[in-house]
Amino acid sequence: MDGSVCVPNTCHICLKEILERQGHPITEEQAWALCYQLCTLLKDYSIDQLGRLIYYCLDWGLDHDVERDLHEALALLVCRMINVNPRTDASLLPIGLPEVIQVCEDRLDGTAQAAHHYKTVCSLLFSETIELYHYIQSYKTCIKVHAWKYVVEEIQSREPLRPCSRTFPSNAYRPPEKLFPFDQLKQVIESKQYTLRKVQVSERKLRERTKEEPCLHERLMAEIRTTDPLELFASCKRRRAVCSCCSNRSQFFTWHNTCSRCDRVVCPSCCVKMRVPYKWCMDLPITFFRKIVLRQSAERDHSHFWRERLSWDCTKVPLVLEALALGSCSQHSLAMRGWHSQDLCIECQGLLEETCETGAFVNCVTGTREI
């Protein structure tokens, strides 16, 4: 990510600087082009490093609670490159550089057209970044030149300088300097404002302090000092890898699915995708929604979704709850492309379904967490 790419007759620029200059993540077409170009040029890099680099460019600048909806083919290719299944913790079939290049070429008609198209996309991204950089530099230069030109014009006009009318007398009041406590005590002793009296020192001995039992804070600090930091880190990581609903543990790494209502970590099997047409619909009361729960096969979910959609009441806002582990890619998922989505655990899903059926409000759901 930090390595620069050398372009003949131009300059060196790294991919991180391109993202910073553009101010937004790359598009899906640019991701395909980068994937093809990197796999054909960088033969020494591992496929896992290239996959994580493409994923970083697609996710650059987004908040941790924002999930980007990618095309199924691109998302599957990135997951196979980093060897992680987005639905479960199971690993996918490994993929090599030739297979990645073949997948990129299959999107277009032929090898020659794919090489020309992807090279053109990368060249446009580079040229746009260079033009933006030159524009910013020229704008800064114009500001400096304009300010200096204004100063030169004032000097050339020979406008006389006005004398300063403000005078400071020699006996003007000056605030006292701030002295340290030691200096203050020294001034008091030198001024002899107070008479010090003699103190007779007795030869008595101080009593030895009895050894008391350490308090709770001291015992806790002693336990922390004697505990290995690696064991503490491993125990915290194990606790984070446990699902809050089914208590299953992650085999590889911690899950990134977090319920937007109760802020608990859940596994993909216990995670539900909640979708509404617009983001501001999340602030509406629960009585404005009509739920569609998709729990069956892809074919049944497809027919159920369109049956509910055709007989829809225009006064209600559609609220679709779909299991994340199903991974449905049918026409009804394409119809919801671009909808605002949030992760929800199965326990909050049951509470939400019960609330939608009864039409009553829940006391613990307030503010922006109306649904």
Score class of each variant (00 low, 15 high):
C267E: 07
S250A: 14
D263C: 05
Q193Y: 04
L216I: 13
R225P: 00
K198D: 09
T227D: 02
W255F: 10
Q200C: 10
T254G: 11
S244I: 02
F253K: 15
A234D: 07
P285E: 09
E212G: 07
L196V: 13
S260Q: 11
D228I: 00
R238C: 02
D263S: 15
Y278D: 02
D228H: 14
R275F: 00
E208Q: 15
I286C: 09
V199T: 12
R239F: 08
C267L: 01
Q200T: 13
M274L: 04
S235A: 15
C259T: 01
Q193I: 08
L216M: 09
R219M: 11
M274D: 00
R249E: 07
L216D: 05
S269P: 02
K205A: 10
V272N: 08
T227V: 03
D283L: 04
L196Q: 12
T287E: 14
M221C: 05
A222Q: 09
T227C: 06
P214F: 09
A222S: 05
R207T: 06
D228K: 02
S260D: 05
Y194C: 06
T195M: 09
A234R: 13
C246D: 09
T258I: 14
T195Y: 02
T254L: 05
F253S: 13
R249Q: 08
V201M: 11
K237A: 06
I189N: 09
L220N: 00
L206G: 13
S202T: 12
L230C: 02
Q251E: 08
C271M: 07
C243T: 05
D263A: 04
M221Y: 12
E212K: 15
V242D: 04
S191G: 11
D283V: 02
L220V: 10
P229V: 01
F252N: 14
L206F: 11
R275W: 01
C245F: 02
D228Y: 03
R197T: 10
E190F: 12
M274A: 14
L284W: 14
N248A: 10
C262Q: 06
V201G: 03
R240Y: 10
S191T: 09
R209C: 06
E212N: 12
L196Y: 13
V199F: 11
C236Y: 03
L216N: 03
T210S: 10
L230P: 00
